[in-house]
Amino acid sequence: MKIKESIAISESGFMFDPSTGDSFSLNQTGKEILAFLKSGKSEEEIKEIMIEKYEIDNFTLEHNFYDFMEMLKTFNVLTAE
């Protein structure tokens, strides 16, 4: 999964998709994950980084990560490939 090229994310967690005109708000972890995705990191790499950095167990993160990716799909901010 990749984030659409054109998407812009601000420091404060504000995200804009110029192709649809939609804007979004992200929390800290959401913002980080999106930034990693945008930089081309794989989902596995991102999860490892998150586990390192945050007080969270594998299982819950896996769960939440999956849910977050589903939201990105719903909001149409991922590209097909």
């Binding site: 995200m15 939609d22 979004f24 708000s25 972890t29 959401g30 990560f65 990105l72």
Partner: peptide, 9 residues
């Protein structure tokens, strides 16, 4: 930690 979340505005 806080769950990652995205909300449409």
């Amino acid at each position: 930690y806080e769950r990652p979340v995205i909300n449409k505005i």
